[in-house]
């Protein structure tokens, strides 16, 4: 069981929990994830670790309410326990001195890239961060990202805050200005990671993405998270979740993520009816 010590609403439908799990916190590294389950009938979902505090024994998770499990999770409050919470899973990010690293976070990808950016900054990299959201009210973790970045750019799709456009527009601008970038790390929606990778390929910049494949056990047992990297099948849970963005078969990943779209709608509808949510 994992006790929720702190709950914060970061934006509409985006919530942050600080969870007491000393054994997970002790081992957590940037780029890794946890798997959790909210109730006995619940499914297991992976969430990337948004922060960890070894001293306090806590792990921070940030999630957007999109399906039944995340809505249910969002209804828990400080003091409540998350039924199952296991980790840290997956391989950690490579943290070394690369030079200038551009850290890109889209939506709830921003809290996921935050500990990576911080660790990269700590070892002496120059950090340029780009964080994007649909609109101003959905921009999250700006203050935290600013604290670990040498430069920070914010984009919104509707232009209600920062630069109008997508994270790729901001990245393109930097590249066109001949900004020297040695490495790009992008975490966010698949379509965003695909667009970033296509752009950086033209500039021959090594690009790392964190793949949000579906998972069950998270330890290499089931194979649902299989992804194609350079034509080879890999398991995102044990071989990843980070991969070379230029080698990922994004279309396959998107198709696989759509496998249970109908069932997910049914689950959410039933849950909302049961809970009296609109």
């Amino acid at each position: 069981m994992a006790k929720i010590l702190k709950k914060e609403i970061l934006a509409p439908n985006i919530k942050k929990f600080v969870v007491l799990v000393p054994e997970v916190a002790k081992k957590a590294l940037p780029g890794q994830f946890v798997i959790l389950r909210v109730c006995e009938e619940g499914e297991r979902i992976p969430l990337t670790i948004a922060d960890f505090d070894r001293q306090e024994g806590t792990i921070t998770i940030v999630f957007q309410e999109v399906g039944k499990t995340t809505f249910h999770l969002g209804m828990l409050n400080e003091g409540d326990e998350i039924l199952d919470f296991v980790g840290p899973l997956g391989k950690p990010s490579a943290i070394e001195k690369f030079g200038t690293v551009c850290c890109i976070g889209g939506g709830v990808g921003t809290p996921e890239i935050y500990p990576v950016a911080r660790a990269l900054k700590e070892v002496g990299n120059y950090i340029i961060s780009i964080i994007g959201a649909r609109s101003k009210d959905l921009v999250i973790m700006e203050k935290e990202m600013k604290a670990v970045s040498d430069e920070l750019y914010v984009t919104t799709d509707d232009g209600s805050y920062g630069m109008k456009g997508l994270v790729t527009d901001a990245l393109k601008k930097l590249l066109q200005e001949n900004k020297k970038i040695d490495r790009v790390i992008a975490v966010g929606p698949v379509i965003m990671m695909k667009a970033v990778s296509e752009l950086t390929k033209d500039y021959n910049i090594k690009t790392i993405v964190s793949l949000n494949a579906m998972m069950l056990d998270g330890t290499g047992m089931c194979g649902i998270c299989r992804v194609e990297i350079g034509g080879e099948t890999k398991f995102a849970c044990v071989d990843g979740p980070e991969f070379d963005g230029h080698l990922v078969n994004y279309d396959l990943l998107m198709a696989r993520l759509r496998t249970y779209l109908e069932e997910e709608k049914i689950s959410l509808k039933l849950f909302k009816e049961k809970m009296g949510l609109s």
Partner: peptide, 17 residues
């Protein structure tokens, strides 16, 4: 695993499809 551990045969009573 879906059927036995997660009880997907009882979907939507259980969440795993």
């Amino acid at each position: 695993i879906r059927v036995n551990l997660m009880k997907a045969y009882l979907f939507p009573e259980y969440d795993t499809p």
